[in-house]
Computed example of a mutant assay.
Amino acid sequence: MTGLNRQTIGSQGIQHKFIYIVSWLSTLSGWLAALMIVSAVGITCQMIYVRAVLNLSTIWQTEAVVYLMISATLMGLSYVQRLRGHVNVDLIPILLSVRMRKYLYFFTLLLSIMIVLIMVVYAFEHWHLAYERNWRSDSVWGVRLWIPYLALPVGFFLLFLQLFADFLAVVVGEDTPFGLEDK
C-alpha cells in the first residue's frame, strides 16, 4: 500500500481505519525487527571482544544472537509484506487482463491467508506448550523458551493481519492487485 489516507469516509471508514492501524502495526514490527538485528550485531561484537581481547568464555551471547535473528525475521514478516519487499515475479499478472489479474490476486491472497492462519494456530500452540511446561534451553544460560518462542505467534499473526488488510485494500479500492495499474 503506497499512500494510505488517514481520513475515514462514508461506509468504508471502518475498513480504512483497520488498514491504517494494521499498516502502523506492521511498521512498528519492522522497527522492532531492525532493533533486534542491531542488538544481535552489538552482542556479536561484545562476544568477539570478550573472547579475543579478554580471553574469556562466553555464556549467553551465541544463544541470544540466534534468538534475536530468528525473532527479527518473524517480526519483520508483516513489514516486508506491507512494503511488498518480497521477491515478486509479476510476469503472469502483467500478461493477464484486469479481471483475471484480480481473480489471481484474490486466489493467491486467500490461499496465503489460510496458510498463515494455520501457522498462527500451530505457533500459538507451540508457544503455549513451552510456557505451560516452563521449557528452558539446554545451555548454561537456560533461557525460558516461551520468551523467544513468542515471536512465532506474534509474527505470523501480524502477517495474517497485513495480508487481510491488503485484501481489504483491494476490495475497497484503496489499492490495486499486485500493485499494478489497470491497463
Rank of each mutant, 00 (worst) to 15 (best):
50 V>H: 11
105 Y>A: 13
12 Q>G: 15
82 R>F: 10
130 A>C: 06
127 W>M: 08
130 A>S: 13
172 V>L: 03
167 F>P: 00
41 V>C: 04
149 Y>C: 00
172 V>T: 05
40 A>W: 04
26 S>T: 06
16 H>I: 04
76 G>K: 13
71 S>W: 03
177 P>C: 03
163 L>Q: 12
128 H>V: 01
155 G>W: 06
43 I>G: 07
28 L>N: 04
104 L>W: 14
29 S>V: 02
52 A>V: 15
6 R>E: 10
161 L>D: 00
175 D>E: 03
171 V>N: 01
160 F>H: 05
9 I>A: 13
15 Q>V: 07
104 L>K: 14
53 V>H: 05
162 Q>V: 04
55 N>I: 06
114 M>H: 06
113 I>F: 08
123 A>Y: 02
88 N>C: 09
122 Y>L: 14
18 F>I: 04
181 E>P: 03
105 Y>R: 08
143 V>L: 15
81 Q>T: 05
124 F>P: 00
42 G>F: 07
6 R>T: 11
41 V>E: 02
150 L>G: 08
59 I>P: 02
76 G>P: 15
53 V>M: 06
99 R>Q: 15
171 V>P: 01
26 S>R: 04
143 V>F: 05
148 P>I: 05
57 S>P: 05
82 R>C: 03
154 V>P: 00
57 S>W: 02
